[in-house]
Simulated assay, not measured.
Amino acid sequence: MTTRRDFLKTGAAAAGGIVFCSCGLPRGARAQPARQTLPVMVGGKRVKSIDVHCHCHFHEAGALLGADAARLQLPPVNGAEEAFIAIDKRLAVMDSQAIDMEVLSINPFWYDRDRDLAGQIVKLQNEKLAELCASKPDRFAAFASLTLQAPDLAVEELETAVKKQGLKGAAIGDSVHGVEFSDPKFHPVWAKAEELAVPLFIHPQGMPELSKRLAGNGWLANTIGNPLGTTIALSHLIFEGTFDRFPGLKVIAAHGGGYLASYADRSDHACLVGPKGCNPDIKLKKAPTEYLKQIYFDSLIFTPEAIRHLVAQVGASQVVIGSDYPYPWEMHPVDPILATTTLSDDEKADIIGRTAAKLFNVSA
């Protein structure tokens, strides 16, 4: 008898028209175009494809965590072990995904550690990231880690990472112990990022305060909790005036920015409908939806229709490719962009790599 594992291993699931997710729910396979391969061509021109949302870990950081290493470095996702990069294997996967360059990041797991330990973890990771990128500068770039629970230390780490280690910005969570990024304590970090003209990649950490409601089938802590975390983080940065204070701040939001772009116009009505729910001392310089046009969003929203809507809301110039590799959310991130018929060739080329190349100051 063919087991489910045998069925998946043979690839029959992809070819046979139906697969089964781990929730036990049937999912009809979408008709797939021919997979894009390298080199990526758009309108007859070569485009360097850049994935801004892909992860890695280092065993050396795990050694500093002790017994917590496995829990914090290996989430319950197929392929999690691939986060510990074997370069030849990672390059082979990138080739199969039609990705020329990955911009690596490490999801923050050290915000609840004391300053000294967190600083050790961040220092080690940034050194390892710099070493990895230097070994294959045409294929890898990276976001620095930051000890955000100690903003003064984070400022130093960011400057060192950018000026001395060649890293391209920093990856941050969506809050620090529930303290929103709009809190003035983080202003020095945003000021330094603005000064260095490097982007900050916001990647959510779930919503532990909603753990009871998100329990049960469907991995809702990630499915719903992660996009919600990003939505809240971005909304605070908008409504508390942080983007007004730091107009040159470059932010990239994971997973298409959560739910914000899908329901953005509600934000423009909130303070008009319920002024008592808004602070009269905070006077934004423009409508809340206008701030979306200065935020960058990754394309990890799966379908051409979702990408069409995101572009309609924020503009093609604000969208960049994201896959979440090695976690298998989107194993062919270029394909949905090429399949979005509402995009021009120039817009497709921008999303696939030209916008990211400008953000990270690399060759396009």
Rank of each mutant, 00 (worst) to 15 (best):
T3K: 14
R5C: 08
R5E: 15
T10G: 12
G11Y: 02
G17N: 05
G24E: 04
R27F: 08
R30Y: 05
R35A: 14
K48L: 15
C54Q: 11
H57V: 12
D68P: 03
A69V: 02
Q73W: 03
P76N: 15
P76Y: 15
G79S: 13
A80L: 15
E82T: 01
E82S: 06
F84Y: 09
A86E: 06
A92D: 08
M94V: 05
D95F: 05
S96T: 14
S96L: 10
Q97D: 10
A98D: 01
I99C: 09
L104K: 03
S105M: 04
P108W: 06
D114S: 10
R115P: 06
A118C: 09
A118G: 15
Q120D: 09
K123S: 14
L124N: 02
L124P: 05
L129A: 03
A134R: 14
K136C: 12
P137W: 03
F140P: 02
F140K: 06
A144T: 08
L146A: 11
L148K: 02
P151C: 10
A154D: 03
V155G: 06
E157N: 04
L158H: 00
L158Y: 02
E159V: 12
E159H: 09
T160H: 12
V162A: 02
K164N: 05
G166H: 00
K168Q: 13
A170I: 08
I172F: 01
S175L: 09
G178L: 15
P184Y: 09
W190A: 04
A193N: 04
E194K: 08
A197F: 11
P199T: 12
F201E: 04
H203R: 03
P204Y: 03
P208Q: 10
P208A: 07
W219K: 09
P227R: 01
L228Q: 06
L228S: 04
T230C: 11
T230W: 05
T230I: 06
T242P: 03
K250Q: 14
A254Y: 12
G258H: 00
L260R: 01
L260I: 01
Y263S: 15
A264D: 12
A270W: 00
P280K: 11
D281L: 07
K283I: 09
P288K: 09
T289S: 14
E290H: 11
E290R: 11
L292G: 02
L292K: 00
K293E: 10
I295W: 00
A306L: 03
Q318C: 10
V319R: 01
G322W: 06
D324K: 04
Y325F: 15
Y325A: 11
P326S: 03
W329N: 15
M331K: 01
P333C: 10
P336Y: 01
D345L: 08
D345M: 10
D346N: 13
D346Y: 06
G353R: 05
R354M: 07
T355H: 02
L359I: 13
F360C: 12
N361V: 12
N361D: 13
S363G: 08
